[in-house]
Nucleic acid binder design. Structure first.
Length: 609
RNA sequence: GCGCUCAUAGCUCAACGGAUAGAGCACUUGACUACGGAUCAAGAGGUUGCAGGUUCGAAUCCUGCUGAGCGCACCA
């Protein structure tokens, strides 16, 4: 079972005790506690509507509002305000609710006590996971992301897949899921005939190291090799023939051919790992399970599909057809699992991968962070796998598409010369800009320290720019925005974190961050405290929806609430020791929450900027 | 032709069917003898593409239309 984060997804309200017993460290959020109580009150007042959702939400008119009364009253043909009154009668009283009020057509506005907020803060600050539970019944997720191609430069599309995938891996793991990463390298296929053949005919090509560049000498050589062989392939028919024969030799396992292929793979991996290291993502060599890995399984996959009748021969190719998928001419468009020349395409590889991931790795959820343009492909692959029995109904398969990266002209992003932007150049520019700003603000820094901060800030800015926008939509690539250090950026979060650490370092001797329960809270303190209480709800939501931008939005509002608090509520110069200690706790917990949340996004939190 | 995605402030983007649609950038004004100004406060900026429908309530759900992008047989 997956965790149920959103009220709508919650099938029924469980008794409070059951929730608490799930994990001793888990802190029930104030919102969840209120939701339970409203559900109980509705159930008691109107037993026939026991499953009615109170629709408890944050409110700009009070701390919370319950919106469910109107939809509850409707089928009863009752006055919503009277229904609200009945519910309130059954709500009981305790130390959490400070004020209740029926408002407008039937909203119930809820104000909670300062003590309830302080209690939540104290409990969360005392727990390493900030009071957020980990689902003991979580499953196994295999997530496929990054997917660069051998002998080709990574581009902004790979960047997006890599960054989004990394954030999802971290977030899913945080919620308790067992996550298996898969980097489905493009390391197999017909293009390798061209590359290998060119290399055989121009053996000096890979050895030439006269042009060491920042992207790494290996990649610039491979890139040149790719372009040269492509040009030769397109212009020289004889070479194209030799290249096609070379593909056959590769698939047949010819020693010299395989060695040449392996050399390119190894060379490319050096480059990929350099990119991953610079980005600070979790992907490692063991996660790189490329298309070639599935090569030995392809014949078997096809044989199974044909034997079971899922796939049939059509024009010499082995195809799977679908009733509702047709081409421009009205003819059905198949998924081709074996070409008429006997070769296999990526569809077959994807099918083999599903079989492997579900059957061997034990996944009960398989995810693909891939450009949205491949939606139809995955629809066909998943449907085929279902028919073949490799993807049972209780296993979830999802294509987590992301929008195409567009240039300012609204067309897929290219540089002026029509080439894809080099990833390392983009990252270098981001780090360069960050270094300039950091050096300006902290001129005394040693080189090593400066470099470390510049990297965390620059890379963090790139990641945040990518993660903070909704995953699905296309987005306009804007290098200035991506490496911007002002506004709604990763740097804003890092700055808030650094200021928190600064204030904690200056805490007077003997002042321990403590939530003194008897204190009355300022508005900015209450706002911050209530927001801190929502962290677990947010991470659950991200794990449910696979939308990291919701965590970005949460962290940004948290940082904004902190700076408002910072402006309005002196910490070190507070009127009393108790107030100082309570505010220190707010600072500390905000810092912990920012650090944890940014870690889930893969963004670093330097102690100082 | 069919299908998928999308259309929100000048720009880039948010908004779990709830009350007055929010941020950032840019613009205007104000706050630096600073618990770190990479900041904050205030202002201006909207018929949520158009038209219907469902609902007590729609940017959100449904239908149609307009406009844009993408995909649709042996490339991945």
């Amino acid at each position: 079972m997956r965790r149920c984060a959103t009220p709508a997804a919650r099938p029924r309200i469980r008794p409070l005790t059951e929730v608490v017993l799930r994990s001793m460290a888990t802190v029930l959020s104030i919102a969840d506690a209120l939701r339970e109580r409203f559900a109980q009150a509705i159930s008691t007042a109107f037993p026939d509507a026991a499953d009615s959702d109170p629709q408890l939400r944050r409110s700009d008119r009070a701390d919370f509002q319950a919106n469910g009364i109107m939809s509850l009253a409707k089928p009863m043909r009752a006055n919503p305000r009277e229904v609200a009154a009945r519910v309130l009668e059954n709500l009981g009283s305790d130390q959490v609710i400070a004020n209740l009020e029926v408002s407008g057509p039937g909203f119930i506005n809820v104000t909670v006590t300062d003590a309830a907020i302080l209690e939540s803060l104290a409990a969360r600050a005392a727990d390493a996971r900030l009071g957020v539970g980990s689902d003991a019944e979580a499953g196994v997720t295999v997530i496929d992301y990054s997917q660069p191609n051998i002998a080709k430069e990574m581009h902004v599309g790979h960047l997006r897949s890599t960054i989004i995938g990394d954030a999802l891996v971290r977030t899913l793991e945080f919620t308790g899921e067992k996550v298996i990463r898969r980097n489905h390298l493009g390391d197999w296929g017909t293009q390798f005939g061209m590359l290998i053949q060119y290399l055989v005919e121009h053996p000096a090509e890979l050895g030439d190291d006269t042009e060491p560049e920042d992207v790494g000498p290996s990649m610039s050589r491979l890139n040149r090799l790719y372009k040269a062989s492509r040009a030769k392939f397109d212009s020289d028919a004889d070479f194209a023939d030799r290249a096609r024969r070379r593909v056959v030799q590769l698939q047949a396992g010819d020693a010299e051919t395989v060695a040449s292929w392996q050399g390119m793979v190894d060379e490319s991996k050096i480059y990929f790992e350099a990119v991953y290291a610079r980005l600070g993502v979790l992907l490692e060599d063991a996660d790189a399970v490329g298309e070639s890995y599935y090569n030995p399984m392809l014949a078997d996959v096809c044989a199974d599909l044909e034997a079971s009748g899922v796939a049939v021969r059509s024009d010499g190719a082995l195809c799977v057809f679908f009733d509702d998928i047709k081409g421009p001419n009205g003819e059905p468009t198949p998924l081709i699992v074996q070409k008429s020349d006997g070769g296999y395409g990526y569809a077959t590889t994807d099918l083999a991968a599903i079989r492997d991931r579900v059957g061997l790795l034990g996944a009960n959820q398989v995810l693909y962070v891939v450009d949205s343009r491949q939606a139809l492909h995955f629809q066909m692959v998943f449907e085929t796998a279902r028919r073949a029995g490799w993807l049972p109904d209780n296993i979830r398969a999802l294509h987590l598409g992301f929008g195409t990266v567009l240039g300012k002209d609204g067309k897929p992003f290219k540089t002026r010369s029509g080439e894809t932007v080099r990833l390392m150049d983009l990252l270098d520019e981001a780090v360069d800009r960050a270094r300039t700003v950091v050096a300006e603000k902290s001129p005394q820094l040693a080189t090593e320290e400066l470099e470390d901060r510049a990297k965390q800030v620059g890379i963090g800015a790139v990641k945040y720019a990518d993660l903070s926008t909704s995953r699905t939509r296309d987005y306009i690539f804007d290098a200035d925005r991506m490496v911007s250090l002002n506004g709604d950026t990763g740097t804003y979060l890092q700055y808030a974190y650094a200021r928190i650490q600064s204030i904690l370092r200056k805490a007077p001797d003997g002042a321990t961050p403590t939530a003194h329960q008897n204190l009355a809270l300022e508005p900015a303190e209450r706002a911050l405290g209530l927001l801190l209480d929502e962290f677990g709800t947010t991470t659950d939501l991200v794990a449910e929806t696979f939308e990291p931008h919701r965590l970005c939005a949460y962290l940004h509002s948290l940082a904004a609430a902190y700076t408002a608090f910072y402006e309005q509520c002196p910490v070190l110069k507070a009127p009393s020791r108790e107030v100082t200690e309570t505010r220190l706790l707010l600072c500390q917990l905000t810092g912990q929450t920012l650090r944890q949340g940014m870690d889930l996004l893969g963004i670093g939190t330097p102690e100082r900027l």
